[in-house]
C-alpha cells in the first residue's frame, strides 16, 4: 500500500534524524538496549524500530563515513525496507518448493516403471505357458497392451516435465558459469547477513553441461543452502568449476559444522535429516537428479571443519 510505504519512509526519516549524533569515527552503540554497532567503513545494519502503536519496522542500512585528511566530512546513509527483501526470500522459497514438488512427482512416476516392468514380464511368462486358442492367452495380451498404454501415459507425463528440464538436442548445452552466477545472486543476501565470505572460480568460462536449467539450479541450490545453514559468521564458501576429460566438475567447499561420520552414509536416504525442520528430501532429490543425468555426487566431511561436495556431469560441447 502506497500510504503505508509513505508512512514507513516518514518513520525512518525521524529515526535517521536521531541517529546523526551517534555516527562517529569509532564503533559505538546505536541506541541503548539495541545490540547494534556502527564502525568505520561500509555497513549493512538491520534495524528494528518500535514505532507508535507498537509496530515494528525493519530497514537495512548501508552506512558510509566520508572523510579526508582534515577529518569527517559527513555520512552517507542508504536504506532499504526489509519487506522487499523478505518478499524476495518468500518468492525464492516458493520457487524452491515448486521445483522440489515437480522433482518428487517425477520420482514417483519414475519409480512406477519397476513394478510395471515386473508385472509385464510375469504376464509374458504366464502367456508363454498357455496354448494357442486358450482364452486366457488373449486376456494376457489385453493386460500387456493395457500396461503398455499405462507406460505411454507415464512417458507422456515425464516428457512434459522434461520439456522444461532438458535442453533441446539442437541446443548447445547449459553454461555452468551462468547458472552459478545466477545462483549467487539468489544467496547474496543471506551470505551477507550471515557474514560469510565466498569465492567462485571457473577454470574455463565456457564449461557446458547437457541438462535442464531448473535441474542444475535445484542441485546447486540444495547444496549451497545446506552449506550456508551449516556455517557461522566469518566462514568461507568456495565454489570451483573445472573440466576433467569428458566431465564438468563442480566443487562446493564450506567451513561449516560438518557431518558426523555415522550420518554420512544416510544423507542420500529419503526423509533422513539432521536439521530440526528438514524434510530429508533435499539431498535425496539432488542425488536423483544427478543420477538421472548420468552424473555423480560425492560428499566428504569432517565434523567441526566443513564439508566438500563433488559433482560431476557429462560435458557438452
Amino acid at each position: 500500500m502506497a500510504s503505508e510505504r509513505r508512512q514507513r519512509s516518514e518513520e525512518f526519516g525521524k529515526m535517521i534524524g536521531n541517529f546523526q549524533k551517534y555516527f562517529t569515527k569509532s564503533s559505538c552503540p546505536l541506541k541503548q538496549g539495541l545490540p547494534l554497532y556502527l564502525s568505520e567503513g561500509c555497513h549493512l545494519v538491520l534495524i528494528e524500530y518500535q514505532a507508535e502503536g507498537n509496530k515494528t519496522f525493519e530497514y537495512e542500512v548501508d552506512f558510509f563515513i566520508l572523510e579526508d585528511e582534515k577529518g569527517i566530512l559527513g555520512y552517507l546513509v542508504s536504506y532499504e525496507d526489509t519487506e522487499n527483501l523478505k518478499e524476495l526470500e518468500r518468492k525464492n522459497m516458493q520457487l524452491e518448493s515448486l521445483l522440489a514438488e515437480k522433482e518428487i512427482a517425477a520420482s514417483y512416476v519414475h519409480e512406477l516403471k519397476n513394478p510395471l516392468f515386473s508385472i509385464r514380464g510375469f504376464l509374458q511368462i504366464i502367456r508363454q505357458s498357455l496354448s494357442d486358442g486358450d482364452k486366457r492367452k488373449e486376456y494376457a495380451d489385453i493386460a500387456i497392451n493395457e500396461l503398455d498404454r499405462m507406460n505411454n501415459l507415464l512417458n507422456d507425463y515425464l516428457s512434459r516435465y522434461r520439456a522444461h528440464n532438458t535442453p533441446e538436442i539442437k541446443s548447445k548445452g547449459l553454461s555452468v558459469k551462468k547458472i552459478i552466477e545466477e545462483l549467487i545472486v539468489f544467496f547474496e543476501h543471506s551470505l551477507h547477513l550471515k557474514g560469510i565470505t565466498y569465492k567462485i572460480e571457473f577454470e574455463d568460462s565456457d564449461l557446458q553441461v547437457l541438462m535442464g536449467k531448473e535441474q542444475l539450479m535445484q542441485v546447486l541450490l540444495n547444496i549451497v543452502q545446506n552449506s550456508i545453514e551449516a556455517m557461522d559468521k566469518g566462514a568461507h564458501l568456495s565454489i570451483r568449476a573445472f573440466k576433467d576429460e569428458d566431465w564438468v566438475c563442480i566443487e562446493i567447499k564450506d567451513e561449516g559444522v560438518g557431518i558426523k561420520q555415522s550420518d554420512l552414509d544416510k544423507i542420500f536416504t529419503p526423509f533422513f535429516s539432521t536439521k530440526e525442520n528438514g524434510t530429508g528430501l533435499g539431498l535425496y532429490i539432488t542425488k536423483r537428479i544427478v543420477d538421472s543425468n548420468g552424473g555423480s555426487i560425492n560428499i566428504k566431511s569432517t565434523e567441526g571443519k566443513g564439508t566438500t561436495t563433488y559433482l560431476k556431469f557429462p560435458r557438452a560441447y
Binding site: L116, F117, L147, N155, L210, S292, N293, G294, P314
Partner: peptide
C-alpha cells in the same frame, strides 16, 4: 530414458541399454 544416462552406459562399454519396461 535420459540420453545422458544411455550415452554413459555405452561409453562404459555396455553392449546395449534397455529402458524398463
Amino acid at each position: 530414458s535420459n540420453v545422458n544416462v544411455a550415452r554413459r552406459a555405452m561409453a562404459e562399454g555396455a553392449l546395449r541399454y534397455f529402458i524398463k519396461p
